[in-house]
Nucleic acid binder design. Structure first.
Lengths: 152, 152
DNA sequence: CGCGATTTAATCGCGCACGATTTAACTACG
DNA sequence: CGTAGTTAAATCGTGCGCGATTAAATCGCG
């Protein structure tokens, strides 16, 4: 009987969920690149901006919780965003261990313009709203199960 | 109360399909790491091995078509696999532009042992076969639509 | 044949990811 | 208080991804 799961016995990477996610991630990255070029943003940088547009003034830790990244990844990204003039980074006077990340005027300014970007994604994918949400929910479940098993 | 925007996908990263894929990809990467450590393989290296187990002796181009990668990414990965003793790389005498990648005895030898790895994934995810296939198919459709739009 | 166009890998530079470690600031507890 | 333990960011090294470029082999067309 043919295996159709994540098992390589029967087949190729094409049948594996991990590869479906892996290759879809690269496709997103490449799809976003030309759209974000005019802002000088990379895809991970864009995700940070989205997180800040939703809730400004978060600490590195809080951003990391939202993006599932840690300071070893975030700090260099945030420094580049700071160098681009989109955010500021300053130690919280209340707790000097923490660094608060805040949007600059320029960072807030591109929000409107950048709203065309996700619209372009939905247009390209042509998925219904319910189908999209379902896919997001299923992927979040996969992610959380994997993450739970990795730690616990 | 959580802020949302009018833009589709524009609330927070948690609602965005691109982020669901992005974070699931990282979760897979971290889930695989301890499982692959004993083979000395990274996750991308493992995907190359899976592709070769399915069809040995492919060219870099053919491997790239399967994995959606190009030589700029594959060549260093293949060199590391070669250094580990899992594959050989040699120019095709029929067409010296091409490099054929072949499993060594050691490369074939770990196939059986490594078959426990995807089993561990299915056990952890607890998804039915049909549900898994459906998810893979949907993600492949997303990937192909994005890739088609990026090129075309 | 000859020579420009095409194809295939490889190379280079940059920006993530991330395990491991370090530094600094805060907390808890005797 | 003081100090051991904890927490938050930053630092470092390695390995991808990938756009851009280069080098070499092959193809195509006169």
């Amino acid at each position: 009987m043919k295996q159709t799961t994540d098992a390589p016995q029967g087949g190729d990477v094409a049948e594996m969920l991990c590869f479906a996610i892996y290759s879809a991630q690269h496709a997103f990255n490449q799809f976003y690149r030309p759209l974000l070029d005019r802002f000088g943003l990379t895809y991970p940088q864009y995700l940070v901006m989205v997180a800040l547009w939703a809730s400004d003034g978060r600490t590195v830790k809080q951003l990391g919780a939202a993006l599932r990244l840690e300071s070893n990844t975030l700090t260099p990204v945030l420094k580049r965003l700071e160098a681009q003039g989109y955010v500021t980074r300053q130690r919280d006077p209340e707790d000097e261990r923490q660094v608060r990340v805040r949007l600059t005027e320029a960072g807030r300014a591109i929000r409107e313009e950048a709203s065309a970007v996700p619209q372009c994604v939905t247009d390209t994918l042509g998925l219904g709203d319910a189908e999209m949400r379902d896919l997001v929910q299923k992927l979040a479940a996969v992610r959380d199960r994997l993450a739970g098993a990795t730690r616990g």
